[in-house]
């Protein structure tokens, strides 16, 4: 395998790993706010790494440019969506989970 192929495999694997972390986080974390953390950060990185792997694999210049656009829009829309979810939760009066809730 060439170094580029190694890089593609590594990016795709990392992307899958972080997407997995996002999924596990959404299940394990206690409330809507903490789950939004997992959904916004891990999921963004997971998708971004996977798209980066695709950008490398596509090779031709223009397709790579389009993949880069996808990356940019993931970075713009994912945090915005997480923010919208969190704000909606706050507007609904949902109290954030704290360590005291654990007892």
């Amino acid at each position: 395998m060439t170094p580029v192929e190694w890089a593609i495999v590594a990016l795709a694997a990392l992307g899958a790993f972080f997407s997995g972390v996002a999924a596990i986080g959404i299940i394990r974390l206690p409330d809507v706010y903490t789950r939004a953390h997992a959904a916004s950060k891990s999921d963004t990185l997971g998708a971004v790494l996977t798209i980066a792997a695709a950008a490398l694999a596509l090779e031709t210049g223009l397709s790579t440019a389009k993949a880069v656009f996808l990356l940019v829009f993931m970075f713009l829309t994912n945090p915005t969506a997480a923010h919208a979810v969190a704000r909606a939760a706050k507007d609904q009066g949902i109290e954030p989970w704290t360590t005291e809730n654990d007892q």
Binding site: Y33, T34, A36, H37, S40, K41, T44, F75, L76, N78, P79, T80, A82, H83, A86, R87, A89, K90, P96
Partner: peptide, 25 residues
């Protein structure tokens, strides 16, 4: 606001003018 959401354990919940409400993990 978006950068805060993307970085270490912080999530912007609401913003009014310059006042940020942030949920931290």
């Amino acid at each position: 606001a978006n950068s805060i959401t993307l970085t270490p354990g912080t999530l912007t919940v609401s913003v009014t003018d310059r006042a940020f409400t942030i949920h931290s993990l």
